[in-house]
Structure formats: C-alpha cells, structure tokens
Design a binder for these strands. Structure first.
Length: 232
DNA sequence: GCGACAG
DNA sequence: ATCTTGTCGC
C-alpha cells in the first residue's frame, strides 16, 4: 500500500517531541470510524537480545485479517535495526521506519490499523497509533497491555466492561475487559475513529484471548522472522 | 527534587 | 521489548 514519505528524521529527543507536536494538528478526531471495516491490520515488533544500545535488531510485522472471519488475508514482515533509543513518550520513533516499510510491502490496503501501544493516551496526545494514522491516512487505534499516562477506573469483571482512562480531567482512552476475570487492556484512538467503535472492534478481535488476534498474529510473525534472520 | 514511565 | 522454572488449567 501507499504510505506518505517519512518526515525528516529526528537526531535528538527534543526534535522528536517537536515532530509529535507538529503532526498532532493533522489528526482527525471527529470521524466516528469505519462503519463496517472489511479488513483490519495488526502491527507488532519483536527485538533481538542486543541490549539497549539503541541499535537492536528487530522485526516489524503487519498481518491483515478479514474482520468477519479473522482469517489472514495478507501479511508482511521486515527485519532491521531500532531507529531510536527507547524513551517513554518517544516509543514510536523506535519502530516507525520498519513498520512503514512493512506497510509499503503489503499487497492490500487495510481498512483499519490496530497498533500495539497507545494513541491519544500519551503525554503529548500523539502515541504510535496517532503517528501511523497520520502517515498512512488510515483509521487507527492502539491497544496496550499496561497503562502509561493517567489513571483508570477498574472495569467490571465481565467481558466487555470498560472504565475511563483519564489524564487529569481528560478522558484519553478506556480500560477494556476482553476476558472475564483477566486484567484489562487499554484502548485509545489514534486517527479517524472514535472510542466506541475502537472498543467495539477490540472486542470483536478478542473472541478467545486477552489480546486481539491482530496483535497475536503480528507478534508471532515478527518473532518467527527474527529467529529465521541470520544474525549479523 | 523524586518517582513513574507504551514497547 | 527481553531475560526465564515451574506450575496451574483447559
């Protein structure tokens, strides 16, 4: 699929934060979301054990599922190196180039992107899901395994229960129970979709496990690619 | 100043 | 993210 050219790459955390502040104005937060997405892409990245020197080997994977059957309709994976050190709040810069390349090699254009991480639930309201949404123009949201910013109300124990995730007075996402009796995941919108649609889709993607099938498939694909790539 | 901090 | 044994459960 087509992805717009990457903005100038930041050399410092300060430059990276400036890019986030600039791109944030391009977000569409009014679109309620695709009424009925036919295909949904999951994105995830795995790392090799090269420590934290900022150049760890990685594999970025994208898996596109049919929204109704959850069967794989396309996939793409690329290996490379981390493009930035891990800094909370600048996490996107670590895996963005590899994920963009994997998206470009995808034979189809999905109707929606589901990222492993956050969207608006971010110190500057511009997490990975927002960044990928703006660069691709596609609707996107994030599902994270742990909270990052703000505080959340514990959702009820039943599958489908939610509790608001707030940063101060602002609701930036939702804690969503995808399996009864299991800790919740954290949903936040990225681009061109609302929280209601994002949570509804998140539930459709978790018929059996805590994490969405999109993330689980992409995780497996990226791990396999790392294992198969010859260490350099 | 100190702790917390998506993956 | 990744490093890791055993253990409980379907």
């Amino acid at each position: 699929m087509e992805v717009r050219d990457l903005h100038p790459w930041p050399d410092t955390p300060e430059e990276a934060r400036a890019i986030q502040d600039r791109l944030r104005s391009l977000l569409d937060l009014d679109d309620p979301g695709p009424a009925d997405p036919r295909t949904i892409a999951g994105l995830d990245v795995s790392y090799a054990g090269d420590g934290d020197d900022g150049a760890a080997r990685l594999a970025a994977a994208v898996v596109v599922l049919d929204a109704a059957s959850l069967e794989v309709v396309a996939e793409s994976v690329v290996t490379g190196t981390a493009a930035f050190p891990y800094v909370p709040g600048l996490f996107a810069f670590r895996e963005l180039p590899a994920l963009i390349e994997a998206l470009r090699r995808l034979a189809v254009e999905p109707d929606l992107l589901v990222c492993d991480g956050y969207g608006l639930a971010h110190p500057r309201r511009f997490g990975l899901a927002c960044h990928l949404g703006v660069l691709t123009g596609l609707p996107s949201f994030g599902i994270a395994k742990t909270p990052f910013v703000g505080a959340y109300d514990q959702p009820g124990k039943a599958r489908g229960s939610t509790g608001p995730l707030r940063d101060g007075e602002e609701v930036v996402g939702r804690a969503l129970r995808t399996r009864e009796g299991v800790k919740p995941v954290f949903v936040s919108v990225g681009h061109r979709i609302g929280l209601d649609a994002a949570c509804r889709i998140a539930l459709a993607l978790t018929p059996e496990f805590r994490l969405p099938e999109t993330t689980r498939r992409a995780d497996r694909l990226s791990r396999d690619a790392l294992a198969g790539a010859l260490p350099s």
